[in-house]
Design a protein around this nucleic acid. Structure first.
Lengths: 346, 346
DNA sequence: AAGACTCAAGAAAACGCTTTCCTGTGCAAG
DNA sequence: CTTGCACAGGAAAGCGTTTTCTTGAGTCTT
């Protein structure tokens, strides 16, 4: 790999040395002044600050990080930015960390644990102090690599920290269960579920299990809970709904692992003339913007994604001080009842 | 700011020195082997690589960047991640840059040019080689700060590079114009437009101007083109549509600066019983997922956001070599005719 | 008034790596 | 058999900071 210096000829970059020279003091004093070290006198400090401002000094964080070990840099690895639920989380994370003078490096894994592991290594190389991951299921090497490099690991969208430094999330199992309870209360007894792909995805799996277990516990027969898996897209949601509607007897209520899937399901029904919620009730998950847009508006489970990002940021900041592992913060999901659900048809 | 070392006690971090020791060679040779420098012999190289793998060596990029000036780090400043159109762009950017071994630091400005300027400084401090910005309108200090630090600047969503190093985008004016042309062809003569907030937003302004100018050029009276501005939200789109529908005579076609606004407009109409496209035609912009979800499906102008991000990545890579300013890449938008538009009512 | 002590500020080491410069070996040419 | 040269690999400088160690001046105590 050849080294390329972006030596733009005219503008030379100003260094701390230049500031010190201009302020008439030593490098050490200049550094201290800029870092609010109390041992530097008032007059001196002001002179340095003025010089820095005048010259437009911008510190070199590589050098700073190298010397002081204070990184102020965290990494986040999400499956994709294309899905609003992750984008929102990152937005919250970034927002809150920026206030603490910390930058965020972003990586997408495409739901691939190998890519995730690889990117974790890259982030370690970048010198991040902390990495935010999604879910509880990871290649064991991923967490180990991070831990060995002294990088804290914060899991999101999950209630359990496991081997990681901390977790910020919610109970996917209980959330799935709450969907089932609500539908049971409406007298539904035959269910369908369109889950996300559960391979390497504990969140999708737990939502499914919570839903299925609760239905079975209420006396529903195993045959009356049909579970399908689909990638997160509207089309896939529609296709799965088609399959579900071709089973006999038909389910009267369908729980979807994401609003994306639920929207596909609803659109499929309206295109083939199945009444929602008259003939079949549909529940989504995430409370994305599209839940409001589709007709009928979607009953769904609200996930506080942006807040989760913010709390992950706070967990990182707390961890800086305490170094206490196992910190977990739980958020609540809420069932939002709108128009896509109703009593079971008689 | 106190210095905090994340000195986790047990695990000591592996350095190049350790690798060299293990491989029985000098620091220099180890470095060369890992960087594929051809002057190191085959046997030696393999021994180093093996040692590195065995020890789980991860290079320290701060040190590397400090010494070699090869950053492999770029920054991106977008208004918000909450809007899919920006999230998609970043997704494409990140994806393509990751292939080139380059990381992306993300910052959100909330449409605030002051925050943007501040974040540009932060990115310079981080040692990015390049910064990706949205739109052509920025605080002049922003571009200057970047340029003086030798950081290239790539603009997106705009057709003109201006003072920046490069631009990747499309012609907002022409896109607005094409919406007007299409509606004129359908015999519409009274128009409304719900533009985004145009203050500090050249994209919103150009879309509006392209639309308005084209209508006027076709002989439409100035009074028959009512332009409103609204923040990017479904609610604001609905509220604006309400206002528009209360003017006399009513417009028969409304162009929205974003699908978000258009969805709000459509939903408003269906809630008050105005037929779309029977009584009023509505065109959106961006071709977001929700354009498909709303009923009727939205006629809109497709913006290739992810592709734009990828091309921005390529522009950055090209710039590494050439250092040629003014590089611009143009993408095409496309009018996608769906169900929310039709001939003007007679 | 002299020693002990505080305190601001400078000199220099250190952070982990890349790269320049240099050394020693092996081999072809004279 | 020497001289020159290519080449693999080592020693050390240096990247821009922070931080430790040190110094010298002033202050306090007795």
């Amino acid at each position: 790999m050849p080294s390329q210096k972006p030596d733009n000829p005219g503008a030379k970059v100003v260094k701390l040395k230049d500031v010190a020279l201009r302020a008439g003091c030593s490098l050490a004093t200049a550094s201290r002044a800029l870092n609010n070290n109390p041992t530097v006198g008032q007059a001196e400090r002001e002179r340095v600050l003025a010089a820095a401002a005048l010259l437009g000094y911008v510190p070199n964080n590589s050098a700073r990080a190298l010397r002081s070990q204070a990184k102020h840099l965290v990494g986040v690895i999400i499956p994709t930015l294309d899905h609003a639920i992750y984008a929102k989380m990152v937005d919250g994370l970034q927002d809150r960390l920026a206030q603490a003078g910390t930058s965020v490096i972003i990586n997408t894994s495409g739901y691939d644990l190998d890519r995730e592991r690889h990117q974790a290594r890259l982030l370690v190389a970048r010198g991040v102090e902390s990495v935010v991951l999604v879910g509880a299921e990871h290649d064991p090497h991923t967490l180990e690599t991070l831990a060995r490099a002294g990088v804290s690991q914060i899991l999101t969208y999950t209630g359990t920290a496991g081997d990681a430094s901390g977790a910020v999330g919610f109970d996917n199992y209980a959330s799935g269960a709450s969907a089932a309870k609500y539908l049971l209360d409406l007298n539904h007894r035959r269910f369908g579920m369109i889950a996300g792909l559960t391979r390497h995805n504990d969140r999708a799996r737990l939502r499914r299990d919570g839903f299925v277990d609760t239905a079975l516990a209420a006396g529903v027969s195993r045959d009356d809970v049909v579970v399908l898996e689909a990638p997160y897209s509207i089309e896939a949601g529609g296709a799965s709904m088609r399959s579900l509607m071709q089973t006999h007897p038909r389910p009267t209520a369908v729980f979807c692992g994401s609003d994306i899937l639920a929207v596909g399901a609803v659109k499929h029904c309206s295109s083939v003339g199945i009444a929602v919620p008259g003939a079949v009730s549909i529940i989504g998950f995430d409370n994305l913007e599209i839940a409001h847009v589709v007709e009928p508006e979607l009953t769904t489970i609200d996930v506080p994604a942006r807040e989760m990002g913010q709390m992950a940021a706070e967990a990182i900041i707390e961890f800086r001080q305490s170094q206490q592992k196992g910190l977990t913060k739980k958020l609540q999901t809420r069932l939002l009842i709108r128009q896509s659900t109703g009593p079971a048809p008689v």
